[in-house]
Design a protein around this nucleic acid. Structure first.
Lengths: 260, 260
DNA sequence: CTAGGATTCGAACGATCGTTTGAAACCACT
DNA sequence: AGTGGTTTCAAACGATCGTTCGAATCCTAG
């Protein structure tokens, strides 16, 4: 095919992927411009379109480079565990471990994401760009379905519908935790060793999630609200009072409000 | 004076706020353009700068309009509960209720956000725009500190540092749950009545979060990892194999790769 | 009815967006 | 040395970004 694949000089390619990854963490998809990426990568502006075809494909490649490995290792771990279990249901801890261990392992390998890998995972979950959301949900739907199935067997007392919700909550706690830049500042401030940080996070997060997943079923049949609204009485009176209001930039300042 | 405030025609102003809110839910701050907003609001393009001074101030006003009420009611509820408790520590359920009930109440009032209010709350937590994040963290830091203090008293066995983490997880589960558009499609599909949906969600979420908050402390002193890494062996071998690769787009194939 | 501020409007501003182009530079191989 | 393909480069493309401007229009008070 007349040289189908470029064998050389993917150094620029890699720098573009790295720059896109770094900027995506701080500014998201829409907040990152092609010029920001090429400047960070010390590459020419046209390099993105040459190597990837466009900005969208660059981000897809950058996400796939990280998340493909993640999901592959997750599924491999789940398969191994289920093979050992030989038909018996796995424990929640084991399934959670199959979700987390690959993530933490990749986060410990600088070549495959390093400490920013978990932040990337979190951001990917919450980025509002429709293009990116569609790409991710299509590409990793099978993996997610497998794990949901495993949790369903591990938690027979939880109805499938309830399980859908709790997994939703769990992934939310995970994604938000990982997406925050502040979280890693906290970790870094606590312990000096980098390698210990991941296990530290897992040790904190796992009991939280497992307890949540195994919590007794809520009583959805009862009609009265979960919290007596009588305590709301006192609050209701003050509704129109001293709430902090945004200064309403009235038209008197018709002079177009100078760039503050 | 001389007509300090615009007594008339804040209809356009309100339509702009509403349009900005609706578009922010789907596309985030960076993904929403001034022209999208004015088109949705059926207003002139210049209306944003006339009424608010700029796009950023419009979004700040739109967020403050919703979240100021929320935090005010939250604090009022917390104050009332603590007054009744008379020095004794509140229960986790009660503090959680002070966080959730105002949110659900506002979500039930179409005038103050309606069913999109919770989605707005979630999106506000995860939007990557630095400008917006700074605005929100500055404006609502006091409220967050108050609730953290209340949780610290309710959970004396949880160390302050551990509590910081668990609240972080909790807010993550909350934000991600609410931010998802799919979540509300699920709710709508389950029950016909709108009013029941909020309580339904609270009943599901509360046991999950409370169980997580009250989970036994993790053993952070132990040196060995929480999951034996020997199960990772089998996964490590397959690392460089059949991972799906993004088709590189060399300059010859100028046609963009058809979406797989 | 009219004067004057409030609001809306169409049009354009400069800046930046993602993308494209064509030629120069690089590089491996005969 | 020279050739063909790969990669980089400066420059510009049209589109869209947020913002600004001046005139037209609306609305109300005198």
């Amino acid at each position: 095919m007349t040289a189908a694949e470029p064998r050389a000089s993917q150094a620029t390619r890699d720098r573009l992927l790295k720059a896109a990854e770094s900027l995506f963490l701080d500014y998201g998809y829409d907040g990152t411009s092609a010029r920001m990426i090429t400047a960070e990568a010390r590459a020419n502006l046209a390099a993105i379109n040459y190597h990837f075809g466009g900005k969208e494909e660059l981000f897809q490649a950058m996400l796939a480079r990280r998340l493909d490995d993640l999901h592959a290792e997750r599924l491999a771990l789940l398969d191994a565990d289920e093979r050992v279990a030989a038909g018996r249901a796995l424990t929640c801890e084991r399934i959670l471990a199959a979700l987390f261990v690959p993530a933490l392992r990749l986060a410990r390998e600088p070549r495959r994401g390093g400490k920013d890998f978990l932040r990337l995972l979190g951001r990917a979950y919450v980025d509002p760009s429709p293009r990116l959301r569609e790409f991710l949900s299509e590409r990793y739907a099978p993996s997610i379905a497998r794990f949901k199935e495993a949790f369903a067997r591990a938690l027979p007392r939880i109805t499938p519908r309830e399980l859908t919700w709790r997994l939703h909550f769990m992934m939310g706690a995970l994604a938000y935790t990982l997406a925050g830049a502040d979280a890693w500042k906290l970790i870094a401030a606590l312990t000096p060793a980098d390698a210990a940080n991941d296990q530290l996070l897992l040790r904190r997060l796992a009991p939280f999630l497992i307890a949540g997943l195994q919590a007794p079923l809520p009583d959805l049949t009862s009609a009265d609200p979960i919290v007596s609204l009588e305590t709301t009485r006192q609050a209701r009176r003050r509704t129109p009072t001293n709430k902090p209001r945004v200064p309403t930039v009235p038209s008197t300042a018709k002079a177009a409000p100078r760039a503050a």
